[in-house]
Design a protein around this nucleic acid. Structure first.
Length: 383
DNA sequence: GATCCACGGGAATACACGGATG
DNA sequence: CATCCGTGTATTCCCGTGGATC
């Protein structure tokens, strides 16, 4: 038996004993190809998009619902399936198009967290349309728009879904109108949290409401737990997490993920009660979703990691923390300070009054704490 | 040379608090 | 007593410059 074989054996043995076999299955920022328990919603969406199947461009759609209700899950699955099933098929008829041209409808899913300007929205769309990479610099927004126009000229239209609208750092529904309505042959689906009534007009013609999960959440945890763990997730534990998360699939999965980390760290081959408790304790309910955090710019994430690594006894006031973090990065303390304030304002960090009641003059300083699971964030960073 | 936008820093504003003023 | 003022910080807002890329 040679060395490679020995290593391979050890590896499989190790994998066999491993509690977690697939971290992605537990990762709240990763979606399953087939969402669980949302069949009725697919029907509603397909109804709204019905013209697609009658060879026409559908109306614009606004999909809305609370955090962790499965909106992203549904939309990613829907768009990739539509792309697979409809792309090479019959041409879409649009009134503005003559008989010529190829017969391809393009389907694009876009995360507004990673496309925060008109330029980036256009760039990502064009990037999906074209096989060659679209440059990120040196090209103007207008050129990108023209590029999209010319791609549309050889297609029969496009359906663009834009997820995570209206978050603190992302574009909103109104922006989407401005960005995409200029194109004749583009229909779009906007995805956000607020109900239609709370948003300024104009509102897309069709709206689909995604309600909070109730009983389905246990199924989601069970299915994803089964896929991700080497043994079945205990039903009582799944129920416990689902109750605690109150229907928020993101929070529930985050807690399960951290519970699995805890168990693995202890060398346990199963998830124990204490792990579940630790998982729930590590995830702030209604905090910032981990998907938002890992979509932040590199430097913002660097600042976050440095913040999390500050010694426990360190002065955590924003001023002092900025200095320390600046030492560990190539940013100045002024920039770190601004980033910390911005992250706090966008709810990624939480600001609290600094407790040490010294005889301070002037306005009270505050300190910042993560409004997400630090454990989860760190583990996604270096797996 | 063109383009976008992240950095960096300074200006403007908000807040805390004690003391003066009406 | 309520309001304003002054001082000292904290926080927010804003925007010119330069890096990176085409």
């Amino acid at each position: 038996m040679d060395l490679a074989e020995r290593i391979a054996r050890r590896r499989t043995r190790r994998t066999e004993n491993r509690l977690v076999v697939d971290w992605d299955a537990l990762n709240p920022a990763v979606h399953l190809p087939e969402p669980i328990g949302r069949e009725a919603l697919f029907e509603a969406l397909l109804d709204a998009l019905n013209p697609l199947f009658e060879e026409a461009l559908p109306p614009n759609v606004y999909v809305w619902g609370p955090a962790g209700s499965g909106k992203s899950s549904i939309l990613t699955a829907l768009m990739s399936t539509l792309g697979r099933e409809l792309s090479d098929q019959r041409p879409l008829y649009t009134a503005t198009r003559g008989e010529s041209g190829r017969s391809e409808t393009m389907f694009v899913y876009l995360d507004a967290r990673r496309a925060t300007s008109r330029f980036q929205v256009y760039r990502r769309i064009l990037d999906e349309f074209r096989t060659e990479t679209v440059p990120e610099r040196g090209v103007s927004t207008d050129e990108l728009r023209d590029g999209i126009e010319s791609e549309l000229a050889t297609a029969t239209g496009a359906l663009v879904a834009v997820d995570h609208l209206g978050e603190p750092d992302t574009v909103g529904l109104a922006d989407l109108h401005r960005f995409l309505n200029p194109f004749d042959d583009v229909a779009w689906i906007g995805v956000g949290r607020p109900p239609p009534g709370e948003l300024p007009l104009p509102m897309p013609e069709e709206q689909v409401h995604v309600p909070r999960y109730s009983y389905e959440l246990v199924d989601i945890l069970t299915v994803r737990g089964t896929r991700g763990l080497s043994r079945t997730l205990d039903h009582v534990q799944a129920q416990r997490i689902a109750d605690w998360a109150d229907g928020d699939a993101h929070d529930a999965l985050a807690a399960l993920f951290v519970a699995a980390l805890e168990a693995e760290d202890d060398g346990s081959t199963r998830i124990r009660e204490a792990d579940v408790e630790a998982g729930m304790a590590a995830v702030p309910l209604d905090g910032a979703s981990i998907g938002r955090v890992i979509a932040l710019t590199d430097n913002e994430q660097r600042v976050l990691r440095a913040l999390l690594e500050l010694p426990a006894d360190a002065d955590r006031s924003i001023d002092a923390a900025s200095e320390r973090i600046a030492d560990r990065t190539d940013l100045t303390s002024a920039t770190v300070k601004r980033l910390l304030y911005e992250l706090a304002q966008s709810d990624v960090l939480e600001r609290t009054e600094v407790s040490a009641g010294q005889e301070v003059v002037g306005r009270q300083p505050s300190m910042v704490m993560p409004n997400f699971s630090a454990r989860l964030f760190e583990s996604l960073h270096d797996p």
